[in-house]
Design a protein around this nucleic acid. Structure first.
Lengths: 329, 329
DNA sequence: TTGAAAGCGATACCAT
DNA sequence: ATGGTATCGCTTTCAA
């Protein structure tokens, strides 16, 4: 491995000088600068980040803590983050927490031990305290926080939107799937939908669930059509659940969207591939990731944050599980 | 930040002793060991990985280079890798290469500069040379290599399997989608299918394509049904392409699987959610990730590799885009 | 404008 | 069994 010493010797200068040209700090005469640059090239030298990090107490690494990269919502987030931080010269250490406190702790320690300059977490830790002792900035993603900078979509508004759209398109007997009580974004959507439904003249039925997994959702779906067979509109907790509902509807030979409308939440990539293509409330996942990374960049550079909380708008994505709205009544 | 010095002072020993108890090396009297452990607890000390890494020239980080985490095949791989390396105390630096040489280089440099102990790459770099100068072990994933340890699924066998199954289930006029020539796994599958088809009595038509993206695949699908409307079986390059084919088939009101059978490749998670649920050739992505990580662990620990090349079996996943096989002929 | 040298926080060798 | 100290490769005063 070629070190700064080798470069210094070869170029006939001191290591201090090489360091100066590397970091563009202090005074360096132009021709020595050029000479050093040339030997760097010649020796194919690239500075040892670890040594740098030891002295400066900062690496160029950023911690990213996700519940589970395998959940189709998160790769989008991760990619948005990566693109943003990469353009600033930072790299990611990735961890899956599975929403388990223990794993979360493991990664906080890893991040600290490796001198990360900051971290982004999309884990809905119950223990915000964990983050208090940290020596680097933290940005929360996909969840709000008063204390920390955070980026999240407007779940309440999204829930409202789903209810409004399904009503506008003619559903009269609506099923609202509540989603797990401990998943905050799901509850916000639920509350949003509920607020609209309760003020509408539609009948509605609330189904309490405790998971967002496909297999569980298939059971909920069966339950819905048994208990409330006349339902003509279902607002699902997310796109996975919505897809499960669609499957069951097909099995029962319900006609979607004519007899039954379905709206999901998230707009994960595969939702456009479902059949019929799923109408849903879109969270701009990639953009959320980018913005979170952007906030973190500002924290790291100690630039003032114009707003600590960034709430991104959700949008109704009209596909084929909802009917076309009737123009002119 | 509390350092090894603080612990040493507080415990009334030297840093050398603290280091010994940390690493369980050399002799330490039991009671001083206990005393040191206690002060470590008391001061909530955790060793600085960066300093450790500088001296030992090894971190506990592993580089993971993926084409694009946003592609639904890769999160599974990544998760398998993470689970395996995490259990050995290692963490991941994640990079997306987008199959671009420049980004790949960027990450190789990052990995080197950060003293990773090894890396896994699923990028189909044209330049194997890039990896020659590296000071740490490399494992190739989702691609084979003579030189380097590698883990991949048996693409040729998978291709054969797809063709055999679709023929066994009664397709007589088969369309084989070739997939991009520069994507090696896709070509292996293609060759596998081709070898079976060419020896069968089925008619077949080969469609040359240059992408695996959904939007492009929709165009190929249209083309297929125009050029070869009587086709009653389609072997797609992967599940995304298969899904696009399904969509087009629906649009044309073809009955799947009665009039048209479709087989995909990969078994990405959402394939069971398509309608009809997609029959496909499964690559065990999570397992591939785990095995690749396992190989890397062995390289790192300098254990001998029993086999450098691990080829994992593919399996036919029978869902609803293929007909049931007729028993007793 | 440049260089010498003191750290950064660990590990491990060599004494004792 | 324990301690002193050189060392890893870099950054940054302080002097010259």
């Amino acid at each position: 491995m070629v070190t700064i010493r080798d470069v210094a010797k070869e170029a006939g200068v001191s290591v201090a000088t090489v360091s100066r040209v590397l970091n563009s700090t202090g005074y360096v005469k132009e021709d020595t600068r050029v000479r050093v640059m040339n030997t760097i090239q010649k020796l194919n030298y690239s500075p040892n980040e670890v040594a740098r990090s030891l002295y400066t107490r900062e690496s160029r690494l950023i911690g990213l803590l996700l519940p589970d990269i395998t959940n189709p919502f998160f790769p989008q987030l991760a990619r948005g983050i990566e693109d943003e931080v990469h353009s600033h010269g930072f790299r990611l250490i990735l961890g899956n927490s599975d929403e388990q406190l223990e794993k979360e702790l493991t990664y906080l320690q890893t991040f600290t031990q490796n001198h990360v300059v900051g971290m982004i977490t999309a884990t809905t830790s119950l223990a915000q305290k964990l983050y208090e002792g940290l020596t680097f900035p933290v940005v929360f993603l996909d969840r709000s926080s008063d204390q920390y900078p955070s980026v999240y979509a407007d779940g309440f508004e999204g829930g409202k939107l789903a209810a409004e759209e399904i009503i506008k398109r003619g559903s009269k007997r609506i099923t609202l799937i509540k989603g797990p009580v401990n998943v905050k974004p799901a509850q916000e959507r639920f509350q949003g939908s509920l607020s609209v439904l309760s003020q509408s003249d539609a009948d509605f039925y609330v189904l309490n669930t405790n998971s967002l997994a496909f297999d569980d959702a298939q059971k909920w779906a069966k339950e819905i059509f048994q208990k409330y067979p006349e339902t003509d509109g279902i607002i699902a907790s997310n796109d996975i659940v919505a897809t499960a509902v669609l499957h069951e509807a097909f099995r029962l030979e319900k006609s979607v969207p004519d007899d039954l409308q379905v709206i999901g939440f998230d707009d994960i990539p595969q939702s456009r591939f479902s059949f019929p293509a799923l109408s849903t409330i879109r969270q701009p996942a990639y953009e959320m990731g980018k913005q979170a990374a952007g906030l973190l960049m500002k924290c790291i550079k100690k630039e003032p944050l114009i707003q600590k909380q960034v709430q991104l708008p959700v949008t109704f994505i009209e596909r084929n599980t909802t009917r076309k709205v009737e123009e002119h009544g």
